[in-house]
Design a protein around this nucleic acid. Structure first.
Lengths: 214, 214
DNA sequence: AAGGGAATGTCAATTGATTGACATTATTTT
DNA sequence: AAAATAATGTCAATCAATTGACATTCCCTT
């Protein structure tokens, strides 16, 4: 295994490759060239080859890539061959949506529990899982080997809750709260700032209306 | 108004500036230098000045930036001084979560309707708005001047629905479906691919466990 | 009113990402 | 079995983004 650092630009593209390859596989396509993939995905063939080569190259010269093999390998790179125990903090609309939405299970993300600090919700069943009070979170994380916490709580509580999670050995935080979390570098944070996203959309709509047709 | 193209890298940072400035404003801070902002936001002061200069520069030499003024100006750049009429397509968990979650209203994103093709949901009230059947969508978009459609439907239906939206003059699509939409360039698409996001998280957790401490 | 100090705006240098080109190597055909 | 073909892997060139440096300008104090 090479130890050279892979840029996040490349990593950010892997899930999209994975998605397209999965679809090709489902269609029964067995092999594909970087040029064909380029046409489908609307990125340059050069970038595709460059990206795959970061991991050693999965193709055969003169032939192309075997779709299924490539799909498997990218899955492994992304760590989808392993399972991850996951809890959701915040049983509001978004937390519930994510809990139910979980065809993430297929990818090895196992939903292990959901927590909230609203007593009205305690015991409520969400996807066959009772909402637990926040006080139980710390022990639960430690005892159940939880890797990932999904934060769907208001920004005011997000920071202290993140600190508690870190203290109990969480490995990754999927953060939906509108706030930056400052955690030690051994804890991975992936932010989903929905309002940032919709603002970008607003900008681009506006930009276009002002006559910047590009 | 300058007509030079602003890179999406810069645009992508604006919402974060906006968020931090809003908080500073709420704390009653009146002025800030790029260096101070750099310390808070953990980006270089040079990048901050460079970014703002894309829009002509909002500061005063020897003084810094007026927080409130800067906040307002970035809001205007993002188009938050205008209102956008928005509908949600797909009244499942995620659609409902987004509908309720809407403190987007504060930013000028006005929730005007929600649609689904499941008859069981027709008429169900979500945030004071009855779920409408998909058949009514096309006319509704046209008649109510809808700018933005939020797609929270399965990937199979996302593509044809996007086409219908485009035909009826939608300006932007906030796409939560796990599929790439091919729309004319005058229609802006902002993707929120949640599974891509969680896969990136999985990668980074794995990478770290394998000993890449960075 | 004048001078010193502070921080912007901007240019240049560097770093990083993407694209292009092609030699190499495997496959396929004859 | 050899030649032709096809497409990768990789190097070099280009393009874009980030950082660093500093002259300029404006604020603030005396």
């Amino acid at each position: 295994m090479d130890n050279k650092e892979i840029s996040q630009a490349v990593i950010g593209r892997l899930p999209r490759y994975f998605r397209f390859l999965g679809e090709l596989k489902d269609e029964g396509i067995e092999r594909i060239s970087s040029q064909e993939l380029s046409d489908i995905m609307k990125v340059t063939a050069s970038q595709i080859r460059q990206d795959f080569n970061n991991f050693g190259g999965f193709g055969q010269q003169g032939y192309g890539y075997k779709v299924e093999y490539l799909y498997e390998e990218i899955g492994k790179i992304l760590g989808l061959d392993k399972t991850h125990n996951l809890i959701i903090i915040g049983a509001g609309n978004l937390g519930q949506a994510l809990a139910n939405y979980m065809n993430f299970e297929r990818r090895g993300f196992l939903f292990k529990g959901i927590f909230d600090n609203n007593p009205d919700l305690y015991g409520k069943k969400i996807r066959n899982m009772e909402v637990r009070p926040m006080e139980e979170m710390d022990a639960f994380v430690k005892e159940n080997g939880i890797d990932i916490a999904v934060l769907t709580i208001p920004k005011t509580s997000a920071v202290p809750v993140a600190e508690r999670l870190v203290r109990n050995g969480i490995k990754g935080i999927w953060n939906f709260a509108h706030v930056d979390l400052n955690v030690p570098k051994e804890v991975q944070v992936e932010n989903v700032h929905l309002s940032d996203s919709v603002m970008k959309l607003a900008y681009n709509i506006n930009r276009f209306e002002k006559g910047d047709r590009s």
